[in-house]
């Protein structure tokens, strides 16, 4: 049984037509004890079928440990969305529900390779000198969440020092607990600074500066 209906398939083909560069969906799974690993894998494979510019690469989290470490993957299911280079765009948990939009947007964005951000934001990000890790906690039923995820991923594309994860909170309850997630979207920058809700670009930039100590 396909995950995507014919109707959605058609829309996706349209949205993914004319990708300027190829995109690799590097997915990590394992056979046992992983909710949604099988579905995430199937989703990645179904998407890859809809564009000849997209390839799906499936790895086993245990057996392909080295590959996982190379891409900084520490939990599954995971998808690294990679364009001409690895911009640090990651999805942990299945990008279903509202996150499906974030996922397709990530594919489009790494294919274009040019972030869709204001000049002020780009200037601020050009100043970043240390690694930044942005984690955006979401639930699949949160319509406001893709905005926060897409912005974080754009920032990852803009700066080689920034990596950005979508984390589906219901699949990683221990992380939701650790980061005290009681509402989504919740964005955590470098473990220290957090943002509640889908904040505009300027606020996320200010918070990112705060995380870097000024």
């Amino acid at each position: 049984m396909p995950l995507l209906s014919d109707e959605i398939r058609q829309e996706v083909s349209k949205i993914l037509a004319n990708l300027p560069r190829s995109v690799r969906l590097v997915m990590f799974t394992q056979e046992v004890e992983c909710a949604y690993c099988a579905e995430t894998r199937q989703l990645v494979e179904e998407i890859a079928e809809l564009s000849d510019r997209i390839t799906a690469e499936i790895y086993d989290f245990q057996a392909d440990r080295a590959k996982a470490e190379e891409l900084g993957i520490d939990k599954i299911p995971a998808i690294a969305v990679i364009g001409a280079q690895d911009y640090g765009v990651r999805f942990y948990g299945i990008p279903a529900g509202y996150e499906f939009t974030s996922f397709l947007h990530a594919i489009q964005s790494v294919a274009v390779g040019k972030p869709d951000l204001s000049d002020a934001t780009l200037h601020a990000l050009a100043e970043v000198r240390q690694p930044v890790h942005i984690q955006v906690f979401v639930t699949p039923t949160c319509p406001y969440c893709p905005q926060a995820v897409m912005l974080a991923h754009q920032m990852a594309i803009a700066s080689p020092l920034i990596r950005a994860d979508m984390i589906e909170a219901t699949e990683f309850p221990h992380l939701a607990f650790k980061y005290q997630v009681m509402g989504v979207p919740r964005t955590v920058i470098n473990e220290t600074v957090h943002i509640e809700g889908a904040a505009p670009e300027s606020i996320v930039v200010a918070k990112l500066r705060e995380a870097l100590g000024g």
Partner: peptide
């Protein structure tokens, strides 16, 4: 507490 216990979106946050 907004976003950390106060919410206006049950579908988003009900899970927690």
């Amino acid at each position: 507490f907004f976003g950390r216990g106060v919410s206006t979106c049950a579908t988003c946050d009900g899970f927690f």
